[in-house]
């Protein structure tokens, strides 16, 4: 067997890397392509199912804003008016909460009152898909500043997007440091990336707590058709688990780098390969944000 006679001048003749990438990096890209197929199947299902339902705006047009106004929903220009959100969201008082605890009329929480009011007037109904700005309108206050009872659509999820884009930047800075063989800089930027990953996961945990706290389950939810919550848990859960896996991989690379594994090996390509995975997670979030929260 004369396997040594392969011509080196031929790109595709064997004995070299035609794409000029290492085997590991090539396989990471192939894996990411297959993973992109998985996510796109979820997003394809979401887009098709969501648009097989009519929208909140169509519903408001059909029952007429005048009728909703009479039911106690402030309206302006055919849309819900949140200028005087106090009337709609901020019915909650500590007194009404204690009443609720004793079984009397009143509401235990701002969220409870808002969701119930939307359900009573038919704005939240199984027959049409809820507008995302009516569902994801909370921001954590943690008792320092009370954002409860304020209508802040998309603000929290935009913050999550910012966190993930920033952690992508710190990751690519770690890769760049690796290309220069700067071990200390790799450690620094990997640590920031891990912190960013944990921040994003914390945000997602809070988002899920809000959503489940309002009564959403895999099979039913107070906002709209059962598939709405099922797809929310499916898509953001799948993405969140990818973020979690990415944080684990980042920690492994961080520890390896501290132990000098890549210095001994002579190259920092493992930082780049794990970086590819981390950027892919960010890329998926761009599309989850577009399809789930904007469209």
């Amino acid at each position: 067997m004369s396997t040594q006679t392969i011509s080196q001048s031929s790109t595709w003749g064997g004995g070299n890397s035609p794409f000029k990438v290492s085997y590991g990096k090539l396989m990471m890209w192939v894996f990411l392509l297959s993973d992109a197929f998985t996510f796109s199947s979820l997003l394809t299902a979401y887009g098709a199912i969501r648009y097989s339902f009519s929208s909140t705006d169509t519903f408001i047009e059909e029952v007429t804003p005048v009728k909703l106004e009479a039911d106690g929903i402030p309206m302006r220009d055919g849309r819900i008016d949140f200028t005087f959100a106090d009337n709609l969201i901020n019915k909650y008082t500590p007194e009404s909460a204690s009443h609720a605890a004793h079984g009397a009329e009143g509401h235990a929480d701002h969220t409870d009152y808002f969701v119930q009011k939307m359900g009573e007037t038919g704005i939240f109904s199984e027959s049409h898909w809820p507008s995302p700005d009516l569902v994801f309108n909370h921001f954590p206050g943690f008792g320092v500043i009370d954002f409860h009872g304020m209508h802040l659509p998309l603000i929290f999820v935009s913050l999550m997007t910012l966190i993930l884009i920033l952690s992508s930047v710190t990751m690519v800075l770690a890769v760049e440091a690796g290309q220069r063989g700067d071990k200390a800089a790799v450690s620094k930027w990997m640590l920031w990336t891990i912190i960013g990953g944990f921040m994003f996961l914390s945000c997602q945990a809070w988002e899920w707590t809000q959503f489940i706290g309002a009564g959403s389950r895999m099979y039913s939810n107070p906002y709209g058709p059962p598939t709405f919550a099922a797809l929310f848990f499916g898509v953001t859960g799948f993405h969140g688990f990818h973020v979690f896996s990415g944080v684990v991989l980042n920690i492994i690379v961080y520890v390896n780098n501290l132990m000098g594994t890549y210095e001994k090996r002579g190259h920092y390509e493992m930082v780049e390969k794990v970086g590819l995975y981390w950027h892919f997670v960010d890329l998926v979030w761009v599309f989850v944000f577009t399809f789930f929260y904007l469209i």
């Binding site: 035609p18 794409f19 890209w29 392509l33 796109s40 997003l43 299902a45 887009g47 098709a48 648009y51």
Partner: peptide, 26 residues
């Protein structure tokens, strides 16, 4: 390299098209 980039990007273009297509279909 262009060949490597094409291997990844061309399938993704079909996928994004498919998502948009099914959105209109739904």
């Amino acid at each position: 390299k262009l060949g490597f980039a094409s291997m990844i990007i061309i399938p993704m273009m079909f996928i994004i098209f498919f998502i948009a297509w099914m959105l209109f279909e739904g």
